[in-house]
Computed example of a mutant assay.
Amino acid sequence: MKVQFYGTQKINVDERLINMYNRKQLGIEINSCIFSDDKSKDIDEAEFLREFIEFIETKGYNFGGGFPQVDEDGNYIK
């Protein structure tokens, strides 16, 4: 094992690589509602989902979650 000094800390190179691969990946949790600026227009759930997933995939991201439809009071639409 090759030993290197970083500032005042002595750490071996193999340990740095292990730490890099064992770290937890950071992501973004989305918790919000999206409505049209036009109060007379509803957002089509299928169209929104299609466009959202396209955006996610073009960025090389992954998405895990759901898309429940809600009214303006936050009540779930069945």
Score class of each variant (00 low, 15 high):
K39I: 12
G65W: 13
N62T: 15
F35H: 02
N12G: 01
F5D: 03
Y76F: 11
C33Q: 10
D38K: 14
M20P: 05
G66E: 15
E15D: 10
S40N: 15
I18R: 13
R16E: 11
S36N: 15
K10Q: 07
N62Y: 05
D14T: 05
D42N: 14
I43K: 07
G64A: 13
I30M: 15
I18A: 09
M1T: 06
K59Q: 15
I77M: 12
E47N: 14
G64I: 10
E47G: 06
N31E: 10
C33W: 01
D37M: 09
N22T: 11
F63N: 05
E72I: 10
N75G: 02
I30N: 05
N75Q: 09
D14L: 09
K39R: 06
Y6G: 04
D14Y: 06
R23L: 07
G66A: 14
I53D: 02
I53F: 13
Y6P: 03
D71I: 04
Y21K: 09
K78Y: 11
R23S: 10
E57M: 05
K10I: 12
I77S: 01
Y6Q: 04
L26P: 03
N19Q: 15
I77G: 01
V3I: 12
V70C: 05
L49C: 08
N22A: 02
Q69Y: 10
E47S: 11
A46T: 11
E57H: 08
L17K: 08
E54C: 01
E15R: 13
F52V: 01
E29P: 00
K78R: 07
E45H: 06
K41N: 08
G64V: 05
I11K: 11
I34F: 14
D37F: 06
K24V: 13
D42E: 14
M1S: 13
L17T: 02
I53T: 03
D44G: 13
F5Q: 13
N12L: 01
C33F: 09
D14G: 08
G74M: 03
G74S: 00
R16N: 00
I34N: 02
F63R: 02
N31S: 11
T58H: 02
V13R: 05
L49D: 02
T8C: 08
P68L: 11
Y76A: 05
C33K: 07
V70A: 00
D42G: 03
R50G: 07
K10F: 04
I18M: 07
N75E: 10
Y6M: 08
Y76W: 09
N12A: 00
Y6K: 12
A46K: 15
V3R: 11
K10C: 01
D73I: 03
D71A: 07
E72Y: 09
L17P: 02
E47H: 06
I77A: 04
S32D: 13
N62A: 12
F5I: 09
G64S: 12
G66H: 07
L26V: 08
E15M: 12
S40F: 09
C33Y: 06
S40R: 08
S36V: 03
Q69A: 15
F5G: 03
G60T: 08
Y76T: 12
C33V: 11
N22G: 10
K2C: 00
N12V: 01
L17Q: 02
N31C: 00
P68N: 04
K59P: 01
Y76M: 05
I43Y: 10
I30S: 00
I34K: 07
I56A: 11
K59N: 10
N75W: 04
G60F: 05
S36E: 08
I53E: 14
F48D: 04
N75V: 07
I34T: 13
A46P: 02
F35L: 01
V70T: 08
